[in-house]
Design a protein around this nucleic acid. Structure first.
Lengths: 189, 189
DNA sequence: GACAACATTTGCCAAATGGCAAAAACTGAA
DNA sequence: TTCAGTTTTTGCCATTTGGCAAATGTTGTC
């Protein structure tokens, strides 16, 4: 739980009562590698804080290829925001890349927190904004780079992730085939 | 002003007093094509609602190439969120692609609105979330597509934009050279 | 250790894209 | 209309990447 509370405290102040309230709502679940946290076609009913492990968000494009949108590692929130916000069926999967420990909250519990804790909406605002900034800053420059540069940028930004993620998933995140990534790797050594 | 109010009303209820308050804070400015709304190196002090025209967000990568991150057209908010949120120097430019009419708000004015209008933070939350969803959904699939498919997707999603944007900017948005985009165009006809 | 299941690397060739420079088309002002 | 400045198209060739299939390497289980 400490990771979660420390994470939240980055974005606003919380007193002990509020911290205890948050802790009382969080529920710890464990996922095995390849388990799904949420699935396409279903409505996302929960938000997860990644206490340990790596998740990925992925979907199938119109050619039937599986595309990894992004990875979510320790000390970040994971949610299919589109499905969760509008309570519509999800278009993507959230899957465990490694075994994971997650702290989960339902929509109702979050609603309780937002009405009880005055700073809550502001905190969530900041987390959403930070996520928006990070994702756009990370994904958008990739378009202008060739595959090799994308891979190097990834290594640079997430040195600890590359070893924990299978090549195939990393390739689909980078937008190239597994073979190409393998060649790029060789080329760099 | 009506565009702005209608836009906000999508995300939450506002009474007449609140609407008048919002109107009283908004300031209309006009930009000529190629003018900057905000510039790299400076701190973004304002948020703009695009009443008319097209803006783009762009930056220079480490090779000195100018990259268009995305376009912002009528009835959307434009802001360098990273700079505005944290009051740090911006890493990107927000520039008028066509002549524009913008309604602008300062950070102080927004703060006033958030303390006076109870639903404000919730509305902003939803707008930020929507923006996050849209940008990630739009940019991330582009990586897995080849340039031709990216161009077709763009035409499909923004049929009205393609004609109003110079080829060079569209190419840098799509992550390809101007020559390649020109060839793709010919190829499609 | 042996085996099956899975992950990664490689070879081959075709297709896509970039880099550069010149030509052609378009635009706006005098 | 003309001309200069800008934007778009084209040609040529090198490089990157994809598609496919086979080979090699790795991991966990019995």
């Amino acid at each position: 739980m400490e990771n979660l509370i420390n994470y939240l405290l980055q974005f606003g102040q919380l007193n002990q009562y509020q911290i205890d309230l948050i802790k009382s709502k969080a529920k710890l679940i464990e996922l095995k590698k390849n388990d799904y946290f949420s699935e396409a076609g279903k409505i996302a009913r929960q938000v997860a804080f990644v206490d340990n492990g790596i998740l990925r968000v992925c979907y199938y494009n119109n050619k039937g290829e599986e595309i990894t949108r992004y990875f979510i590692d320790e000390n970040n929130f994971a949610v299919d925001l589109n499905s969760f916000t509008y309570q519509i069926p999800s278009a993507e999967y959230v899957q465990a890349v490694t075994d994971c420990k997650l702290l989960i909250f339902s929509a109702d519990e979050l609603k309780d927190l937002s009405t009880t804790i005055i700073a809550w909406n502001g905190i969530i605002n900041q987390i959403t904004a930070k996520s928006l900034i990070e994702k756009v800053n990370r994904i958008s420059p990739m378009l202008a780079e060739d595959a090799k540069a994308r891979y190097i940028s990834f290594l640079d930004k997430f040195p600890q992730l590359a070893n924990r993620i299978p090549l195939s998933l990393l390739a689909s995140y980078l937008g190239i085939t597994q073979s190409s990534l393998s060649r790029i790797r060789k080329n760099i050594r």
